[in-house]
């Protein structure tokens, strides 16, 4: 969207993507300049380290079963944080893994309650994380699968063949992040209009607010205000 646009068509122009900062910087984030003179705070976003065994509770049981069924998964795929088990899944194993998650009697995660994306622009080669929340009604457990894909090649296999309820969720993730779910039956935009340009939930997509004007004063839109 870098071509010049006729002013009459200005209303049709979508917000321009801006480059995100490599790390959270200073007290005032990426907004206008630091007014306090204090800018020494560095706040890098670090990926989480996998948890060591034993994971505790039923987590070991599920982790062992998953490793038995999908040996390629490896021992460092599991992370237990705040009482929730996260499995880091390579994209190529995803379809195989969810099939086991649903069908294996020891796992029996019948329900994929939610699929959502997270954009980490700093994690080069794994910018997009797609997070699947599985629910086992039989065992009353929840499991989180996290798959990643690079921004240059945003492709992940679709889990719709295993979990039909993930259909709209994957469409939403495509709409909001631009992650292409291969083998999805009908991957189209769902929330935004069909002709929308860009994927709004990406971190480099601006919020698109307008300045708020008062008599004699102006407040910038939320993404351009200073932040902490």
């Amino acid at each position: 969207m870098s071509q010049t646009v006729d002013p009459a068509d200005r209303a049709l122009v979508r917000p321009q993507p801006v480059q995100p900062p490599a790390e959270r910087r200073g007290m005032w984030g990426s907004g206008p300049g630091d007014v306090s003179g204090y800018g020494g705070l560095r706040h890098p976003v670090v990926p989480r380290q996998p948890s060591a065994r034993p994971l505790g509770g039923w987590f070991d049981e599920v982790a062992d079963r998953l490793t038995t069924l999908v040996p390629e998964l490896g021992p460092d795929a599991f992370l237990v944080d705040r009482g929730e088990l996260t499995v880091a899944v390579p994209g190529r194993l995803l379809v195989q893994l969810v099939r086991h998650c649903r069908d294996d009697a020891w796992l029996r995660f019948e329900n994929c309650v939610s699929v959502s994306g997270v954009h980490y622009p700093d994690q080069v080669g794994a910018e997009f994380h797609v997070v699947y929340h599985l629910l086992s009604i039989t065992h009353n457990r929840r499991l989180r699968l996290e798959a990643t894909c690079p921004e240059s090649d945003p492709h992940l296999p679709s889990v719709v063949r295993t979990y039909p309820m993930a259909d709209w969720h994957e469409r939403e993730t495509w709409d909001m992040f631009g992650v292409v779910f291969d083998d999805h039956p009908h991957l189209t935009r769902i929330l935004m209009p069909d002709d929308w340009v860009g994927h709004p939930q990406r971190k480099d997509y601006p919020l698109g607010g307008v300045p708020i004007e008062f008599k004699g004063a102006e407040v910038p839109p939320p993404d351009q205000r200073r932040s902490y």
Binding site: V45, T86, S114, S116, V118, V131, H133, R142, R144, Y228
Partner: peptide, 28 residues
């Protein structure tokens, strides 16, 4: 970190997947 919490809303399971990067605002 990231968490998923769920409540039984009148319509069914309402869930929230919240990701924090350690700042004062939600990351996602």
């Amino acid at each position: 970190g990231q968490v998923y919490s769920a409540v039984e809303s009148p319509k069914g399971e309402l869930g929230c997947h919240l990701v924090s990067d350690g700042g004062t605002r939600p990351y996602r």
